[in-house]
Structure formats: C-alpha cells, structure tokens
Amino acid sequence: MTSRNPASRRPSRIGKWLRGLAGLVVLGLLSEILGRAGIVHRDFLPPASTILGRAVSLAGDGYFLTNLWSTIKAWAIGLAIAVGGGVPVGLLLGSVPVLNTAVRAVVEFLRPIPSVALIPLVSLILGSGQTTEVTLIVYAAAWPVLFNTIYGLQDVDPVAKETMRTFGFGRLAVIWRVSLPSAAPFIATGVRLAAAIALILAVGTEILSGFGQGLGTFIAQAQQSIDGTKDVLAGTVWTGALGLLVNVVLVQGERRLFRWHHAQTGGRS
C-alpha cells in the first residue's frame, strides 16, 4: 500500500555512516602524520590522538564541565525564547498580510547585520554576563524560526483551509488545525538552523567577552596559557561534538514527526 518509498532510492543508512566515518578517519590520520612527522610544529597542531585524548580527559574535569554546562544552559534558554517568540510572531505575520508588509522594512534592515557584530554593542549595554549571551542568542536564533514560520504558512494548501472552513471552523481554528501543523516541518527546519546559530552566538559571545563561564571562555583562556593549544583544540572538538549531537537529535526528531511530509514531497525537503 505504501506507494512511494523514497528510502529505496538513496544509499543505505549504514553506507552513509561508513562514508562519513571514512572522511573523519582520513582527516585524523592526516593531522596525526603532520604532527608526528614534524611538518607542523606540535605547539601549533598537536597530533589528532593528543587532541582527542585531551578531549576525553576533559569529560572528567570539573572545571571544564562547569563551563560546558554554562554554555548548554545559555544555549537552551536562548533557543527556547527564540522559538517561543519566533513561532507566534511568525504565525501573526504570516496570517495577517498587512502586518507582514508593515514590518518587512524593519526586518530587511535588521537581518543583514551579522549577529556576531552586535556582541560588543550588547555587551556595552547589558554588561558581559549571561544576560548578554542569552540576548544575543535570542536575537540571532529568532530569525530562522520567524522566517521559516512565515514561509511555512505561505505553503499551506488553500484547499485544506477551505475544506475546514466549509466544516464551520473559524479563522483561528483553521490556523491551529491546518496552518500550524502544515507549517510544522518548515518551522522544525528553522529550529534546527536556529540551534546551530545559537551555539555560534553562545561560544562567540563567551570568547569575545573574555570572562564569565562557558566553552568559549574555556577556549579563550586556554589560548593565553602555556601549552594551551591542545586545550583550545580539545575545547573546539567538544563544541563541534555538541553541535553535531544537537543536529542529529533534531534531524531524527523531524524524520519521526513528519513522516507524512516526507511521504508527500518524496523526501525532498
């Protein structure tokens, strides 16, 4: 009965994993050779095994874990506020065209400013604590959520909306029962983009503000210390791992929740 099965046309999941793994192994080997052979000085680029060993040992380091937790907390709070604000505002702008046109000018002015460029300004106003960090995360992460919500609403099928209207559902009920679920896969993509951006802003703010707590602070401080390169790199590995984990979890969640969407689009989006 399942008429369209997109999975059959793609390489198998294990095959994909193996290819990804091969890329990582090659990168690791390359860095190992460059380091061990002395082509690159060890203080600039320690061998991959040293970096990974240090990254693993950091998992038992209380000081590092406090920093890691601090970043995760700021990231989660910022992302939650961005989603909690971005989705309703997007729903409002997406369903009231007049509002959308009115706000567009402001949005088009604000959006091209790279969020990272705002770090000094916001630090100046709010000081350099978690408030600054969360504020910047919210600002940067809200955009993809907002735009994907509006975009998702434009993609809602008018026939589905009319059908519900003919069954007597009012405007709000149609938004709740048709527009929002229909836009949900787009919103989820926005949230996934926002999660990555939020991590950039979290670590970036921590690095630039130079004190407080966080992965970024850990990396920035390691940079100042003697023989700190491997700590800098180990911290970077953790940041990457965190980003990867978040992405994998969200992608899997989307697959599970929006099976109907993939079935309809043939897995294109």
Binding site: V159, M164, T166, G168, A173, R177, S182, W260, H261
Partner: peptide
C-alpha cells in the same frame, strides 16, 4: 452550518498528518 463540500483534489483536501479515522472525525469536533 450543516454543509459539507467534497473537493476534486482529495489529496489536498485531506490532512496528511492525521490518520484516516481522525480526518473523518475532525469536523465532528467542531
């Protein structure tokens, strides 16, 4: 009230995230 429409585009008229039963039951919720 008391009116129903069957559209030509069934695939666009039905809600893909709801099961067949939930699709049929939804208008009664109203």
């Amino acid at each position: 009230d008391n009116l129903a429409v069957v559209f030509q585009d069934y695939s666009r008229s039905l809600l893909p995230w709801l099961s067949v039963r939930d699709n049929v039951a939804l208008p009664l919720r109203r």
